[in-house]
Design a protein around this nucleic acid. Structure first.
Lengths: 205, 205
DNA sequence: GGGAATATTCCC
DNA sequence: GGGAATATTCCC
């Protein structure tokens, strides 16, 4: 079974140590904590050969032996033993592979001795571009060489599929709009605050 | 580690048995297959006491002993040993708890001896409540019962109409988003200009 | 029970 | 590398 590393909570707020002032403190994502801890918890070795470690500069890490890493390390920290799933997560959090020769990964905010910086690493949101590719949902099935009944059923299914996709797309667009509106509010808020501040500044002078 | 049950693929299409006609066949979701198999693979017992089994009528199943079920059964089929995660999945797929006294669950399409019916069980889609749900109605009409030719034509026209409207709506939403983005740009511009201006003002004073 | 975030898988 | 579906977790 999986080890438990203190913070398993999925939300990003923790209570303060003193238990009184409940100022919301950000917690790093579980994936980041586990990956960091995995590097700190002893230089992982097998038969005297390093499996995974921080790099020389301490500003990245190297998986020296992906096979051993997947088999021995991953299942101790995650619910799987697939190297590719681990990579997928690294990408999700914006890590970059630095070399085509070795499995070295870097992220500006992922550095040896800087566990506190992990909070600044954010999961990438999937933000569709302003005009999404509605070309994708277009159905391009030509294989209707059978009787007209089948054909009609087939057409029906294609229509249903397209319909379903359109509804999904609509929802996504509506959510995008909501996000835009939220951002507008923030900007307006920011603008008005700025105006206040600088007016005061002028007044004081 | 987890057992592997034939179909682990996450997409819902399988190739035909004969390997020639590649008509897409739906595969049940992994969760459903595992839950079904878990019930078929021997009456799970511990010390002569049933842990989980089909109910009398074979139209549902009962977790007789949640503690043993979580500890012994779940990790053999899933990547966890949490009863509540299992329940969460059941809810996601539309199962209903039938009693407040025992952990019995039913789904119309989940019946003993009917593994093939699992394909008809669909995951509930999460539609955020922020927006009006005037889209919730049409999703699962497969059963064209009797003199279905006229009906099918009728349905077809309705679908076409709905489809057309959806595309129109999409365009409108995309335009709304474009406007939002433009406004955002203006606001940002305004903000930066304002900052410049007021800094200059301060400098002059 | 279900919304929503993160994790894992599969596919392009 | 990343999109998208399903799985798992956490919270209300």
């Amino acid at each position: 079974m999986e080890l438990n590393f203190g913070t398993n909570s999925l939300d990003n707020f923790c209570s303060d140590q003193d238990g009184l002032s409940l100022k919301p403190l950000r917690c790093p994502a579980p994936f980041l904590l586990k990956t960091y801890d995995l590097l700190e918890e002893g230089s992982e070795e097998k038969d005297g050969i390093k499996i995974v470690s921080w790099n020389e500069e301490g500003n990245g890490f190297v998986v020296w032996s992906p096979a051993e890493f997947s088999e021995l390390i991953l299942p101790r920290y995650f619910k799987h033993n697939n190297f590719s799933s681990f990579i997928r997560q690294l990408n999700t959090y914006g890590f970059k592979k630095t070399s085509s020769k070795i499995w070295e990964f870097k992220h500006e905010k992922f550095q040896k001795g800087c566990r506190h910086m992990l909070v600044e690493i954010n999961r990438k949101k999937c933000e569709p571009s302003v005009f999404p590719q509605y070309l994708k949902s277009c159905s391009e099935e030509n294989a209707m060489t059978s009787s007209s009944v089948e054909e009609s059923i087939n057409n029906h299914e294609i229509l249903m599929e397209e319909n379903k996709n359109l509804k999904k797309e609509r929802l996504e667009l509506q959510m995008q709009i909501a996000e835009c509106k939220a951002l507008e509010m923030k900007l307006l808020d920011c603008l008005s605050q700025y105006m206040d501040t600088s007016q005061n500044k002028v007044r004081r002078l």
